[in-house]
Amino acid sequence: VTMSVIKYSSPTSAGAECIDPDCSWVEQWVHRAGPRKDIYYEPNEVKAAIVTCGGLCPGLNDVIRQVVFTLETYGVKNIVGIPFGFRGFFEKGLKEMPLSRNLVENINLAGGSFLGVSRGGPKTSEIVDSIQARRIDMLFVLGGNGTHAGANAIHDECRKRKLKVSVVAVPKTIDNDIPLMDKTFGFDTAVEEAQRAINSAYIEARSAYHGIGLVKLMGRSSGFIAMHASLSSGQVDVCLIPEVSFALDGEYGVLQHLEQLIKNKGFCVVCVAEAAGQVSELTVVLAFAFFRSIYH
């Protein structure tokens, strides 16, 4: 699927097309989450489970809390948490945790995961065996790339066995690198924390003779954190992100621009997303060593 197939978006769908002057929307795919007129399950008969996997991410407890709140709003009373990721499905001594509004009311005030996390786990067939034995109807999986691959495998195995189990995957990434999503949870916190590093680099660079502050931020293959943090701080002169190509050398290269900044204002701050230009760290170090030697 490529972004080129998306022409417009409607209030209910990320892929939609306006087909007439009155703008009648034809929804194509990727429907937005939200209340629906008809629901498949009888809420009072549903058993829903929540599991958090992989590393920690700001906002995990907020998501757990809101899932519980929303399920109870729909009338679901049997809600459980699976402790310590997929391991909670098979590890002896790890028992599922009954969840309710009263129990999760204030967990958003604490960091980490209320349910605990872990990496890896048992075979997909063993997880589905456990889901079947526990009579789980809905499984909410909070995690990253590997976790989502696991959730997809669980879904495929459930379909193979013709089990009526809904597997709902919630992307866990501070990088905001999921197409068609307005914003991933944890992203705002990442941007806020990144600004602290930028502010420190700004103070160091401004205080030094011909100082250059260099901040490298996470993002994997996306520059959302670097871009938003740079715009929010108002202190970054150059922001390099993987979505925009650039040249280090040449008449319009980054190094020449930095040279001009040093001449005009005496210092500069550079923010680099980790995959920007796929430039090796050695190249960046040598480039800045070159500037230090010139303007020392």
Rank of each mutant, 00 (worst) to 15 (best):
A169Q: 14
V170I: 15
V170E: 02
K172T: 07
T173S: 11
T173Y: 01
T173D: 06
I174N: 01
I174R: 01
I174H: 01
I174Y: 03
D175P: 07
D175T: 08
N176I: 09
N176R: 08
N176M: 10
I178F: 13
M181V: 15
M181Y: 12
M181W: 11
K183Y: 13
K183N: 14
T184S: 15
F185Y: 13
G186V: 06
F187Y: 15
T189E: 13
T189N: 08
V191E: 04
E192I: 00
A194P: 03
Q195A: 00
Q195L: 06
R196A: 10
R196T: 12
R196K: 14
A197Y: 07
A197S: 14
A197G: 00
I198T: 05
A201V: 08
A201E: 05
I203E: 10
E204Y: 05
S207W: 09
S207Q: 06
S207L: 06
Y209T: 13
H210F: 12
H210C: 12
H210R: 15
G211Y: 04
G211W: 05
G213L: 09
G213C: 08
V215D: 00
K216E: 15
K216T: 12
L217R: 07
M218W: 13
G219R: 03
R220T: 12
R220Q: 06
R220P: 02
S221C: 00
G223W: 04
G223Y: 04
F224R: 05
I225L: 10
A226Y: 02
H228I: 01
H228D: 14
A229E: 10
A229H: 04
S230G: 11
L231W: 00
L231S: 12
S232V: 00
S232Y: 00
S233K: 08
S233G: 03
Q235K: 15
D237C: 12
D237T: 11
C239T: 15
C239I: 13
C239W: 04
C239E: 09
L240W: 07
I241Q: 01
P242H: 07
E243Q: 12
V244S: 10
V244N: 13
V244W: 07
S245R: 08
F246H: 11
A247E: 15
L248M: 14
D249P: 00
D249M: 11
G250M: 06
G250K: 00
G250N: 04
E251L: 02
E251S: 09
E251R: 02
Y252E: 14
Y252G: 14
V254R: 00
V254S: 01
H257G: 11
H257Y: 14
L258W: 04
Q260L: 14
L261Y: 05
L261I: 11
L261E: 08
I262R: 09
I262L: 15
I262E: 03
I262P: 01
N264R: 13
K265C: 10
G266N: 13
G266D: 14
G266L: 12
C268W: 02
C268H: 01
